[in-house]
Amino acid sequence: MSDPGGHRHDVPGGAAWSLTLARGSTLRLEALGADAVASMLLYAADDRWERLNVPDTLKAQMSARIHPPMVLMSDMGRALASVTGSSSDWHDAITGHSVDADLARFGPSDYGRDRNGWRRSARSLLLDELYAHGLGERDLHATVNWFVKVRPGGDERGTLGYVPGHTTAGDWVCLRAEQDLLVVFATAPHPLDPVAHWRPAGVRAVVAPGAPAPADDPSRSFRAESARALAAAERSAR
C-alpha cells in the first residue's frame, strides 16, 4: 500500500514481516491496537554477521529501556539505527520474545485447524522470516520489543512484570537506518502479557526516504558512546 509519507505495510497481529532499509531512510512503526508488540531483530544488510547487540546498547547508554534519541548498536560497536522519535519513552529490550511454551495457555492450535488464525510464537514467526533470508536459529538475538513496558515487581527475586495498557492504538516509534539494514519483526503477544485470550494487535510500518544523521543530531549528543557508534558506522560507509 502507498502512503503520502512513504511505503506502508500493515502487519496483522500474530504475524511477521521483514524488509531492507537503505542508510538514511526511516521506519515508522504504529500500533494498530492496544498492547501491540513488535519484537525486532536487526542485521547489517551487507554483512549479516553484524547484528544488534542489546546488552551493549543498554550498557553503553546507561539505560534499562529503549527511548529516543538512543542508538541501536551492533556487536561491532557501530550504529545500526537511531531512535529519532516516539510517543512513548519506554520500549522493552530485556525480557525477550515469546516461545511456543508461552502460548500453551491459549490452547492447541495448528494450521490445519485454524488456517490464518494459527497461533504462533514470536520465535517461530521470526525464524520463518530468517529462513527466507538464508539465516536461521544461530542468527537469533535478543529483541527490542517496541511498545512494551516492564517494571520491577518489588520482590526479592527481582521479578519483572508486564505493564498492560502501556500502548494504545496510534502510539508510534520512528527509526533512522545508520547502515543498510535487514529488519525482521513479529507481532505475537509479549511473553509476560497475562492476557487470557488471543487477540494480538497489528502494527503499521511506514518506510520513507531520508538522510544520514546531521552533525547536530540529538543521538550524537546523547552519550559519548552514541556519538562514537554513529561515527564508526559513517566510517564504514565511506
Rank of each mutant, 00 (worst) to 15 (best):
S2F: 10
H9L: 15
V11N: 03
G14L: 02
G24T: 00
S25M: 03
T26H: 07
A31T: 03
L32I: 02
G33M: 04
G33P: 04
A36F: 08
L41F: 12
Y43S: 04
A44S: 12
A45Q: 03
D46K: 10
N53V: 06
V54G: 06
V54L: 12
V54P: 11
P55W: 08
D56L: 15
T57K: 02
L58N: 08
Q61I: 12
A64D: 12
A64G: 10
P69S: 08
V71I: 15
S74D: 02
S74R: 11
L80C: 10
A81T: 09
S82I: 13
G85T: 05
S87K: 10
S87F: 09
H91N: 03
D92H: 07
T95Q: 14
T95S: 15
G96R: 05
G96E: 06
D100L: 08
D102H: 15
G107K: 08
G117K: 05
R119S: 09
R120W: 08
A122N: 12
A122S: 14
R123K: 13
E129T: 03
E129C: 10
A132S: 15
G136L: 11
E137Q: 13
H141E: 05
A142C: 07
F147W: 07
V148M: 00
R151W: 11
G154T: 10
E156H: 12
T159C: 06
L160D: 06
P164Y: 07
G170E: 03
D171W: 06
V184H: 01
V184E: 04
D193M: 10
H197L: 14
H197V: 15
A201H: 01
A201S: 15
A201Y: 01
V206H: 00
V206P: 00
V207T: 14
A208N: 04
A208T: 09
A208C: 08
A211G: 00
P212D: 05
A215V: 13
F222D: 01
R223D: 00
S226E: 02
A232K: 10
A232P: 04
A237T: 09
R238M: 11
